[in-house]
């Protein structure tokens, strides 16, 4: 059976580190980075990239529209 894999691209400079995407992820893919962007926010990133299924929840809930989501079947 083909495995569905996803990828999340965060505009790290525009991210405000609110974590709403982190808690919305069903696979615990996203975390806030220990690094901060130029505005001082711990931006969201794929800490667990292999688990992403590209469901799009993170993009949907992101208040700042900084997340782009991709999905492919392997």
């Amino acid at each position: 059976m083909a495995k569905v894999r996803g990828a999340v691209v965060v505009d790290t400079e525009a991210c405000k580190g609110c974590s709403v995407c982190v808690v919305s992820c069903p696979k615990n893919v996203l975390q806030l980075n220990k690094q901060v962007n130029s505005r001082g926010y711990n931006y969201s990133y794929m800490a667990n990239a292999d688990e992403c299924i590209g469901c799009g929840n993170c993009g949907l809930v992101c208040p700042d529209s900084v997340i782009t989501v991709y999905r492919a079947k392997e």
Binding site: K16, G56, P63, D64, S65, V66, I67, T68, V69, Y70
Partner: peptide
């Protein structure tokens, strides 16, 4: 493979709202 992206009608301005604000 794109499944979700920012709406075209949104501008590129970074919103002044606080982190997590529902307005955005």
């Amino acid at each position: 493979n794109l499944v979700y992206k920012k709406a075209d009608a949104l501008s590129d301005n970074i919103m002044h709202y606080c982190p997590g604000c529902s307005h955005g």
